[in-house]
Simulated assay, not measured.
Amino acid sequence: MLSHRREHDVLVLTVHEDPGIGGRAELAENITDFVRAFQPAPVVVVTDDAAATPATASAVLRAHRRCGDLNVLFSAVTHSASVRRLLEDNADSRGPGLVVHGRADVAVDTVCGAAA
């Protein structure tokens, strides 16, 4: 369901499958665990097309809230305009903001530039 890689000192997590309503908490916890393990590295969470659902957005938002106290740059990527709107409209405004992109390469480049 979730894979990870390092790209230019950025932790890139990819959600491959819709977790469904029942899997949101587990996905959020897995994302949070990766963020904590790789901190202070910036994080980009990419949502594959098959996972671009409200449940995935909910899990990403929950992970973003949990990681707010870590002061880690946190970005999300999805091709789905409706999921991008969900993420943007419901992002936690405390701590570092959630930046939402439509393309992973742009997200990684942006995070690298911001972290430099």
Rank of each mutant, 00 (worst) to 15 (best):
S3R: 14
D105L: 12
P40G: 03
L61C: 07
A107L: 09
D69M: 09
A114E: 12
A50S: 13
L13R: 05
D48L: 09
G97Q: 12
G68Q: 05
V44P: 02
R65A: 14
L13P: 13
M1H: 02
R66D: 09
V106F: 10
R5G: 08
S58L: 11
G102W: 05
F74R: 06
V100Q: 09
A52D: 07
G102F: 06
E26S: 07
R65E: 10
R5T: 13
P42D: 03
S75P: 00
R66F: 08
C67H: 02
A41L: 10
D109I: 00
S82I: 06
H8I: 03
V72Q: 02
N90P: 04
D92I: 03
G97E: 15
V100Y: 03
T56C: 14
D105N: 10
S80K: 05
A51N: 12
F34E: 15
A37D: 14
E26L: 09
E7G: 00
R62C: 08
L98P: 06
V12K: 04
L11K: 06
V15A: 14
T56N: 10
V10S: 02
T14S: 15
V15I: 14
V43K: 06
E29T: 11
H8R: 13
A76V: 05
F74W: 02
D9T: 09
V43N: 06
I21D: 04
D48A: 15
L13S: 13
V72M: 00
A91M: 12
V77F: 04
D48N: 11
R85F: 00
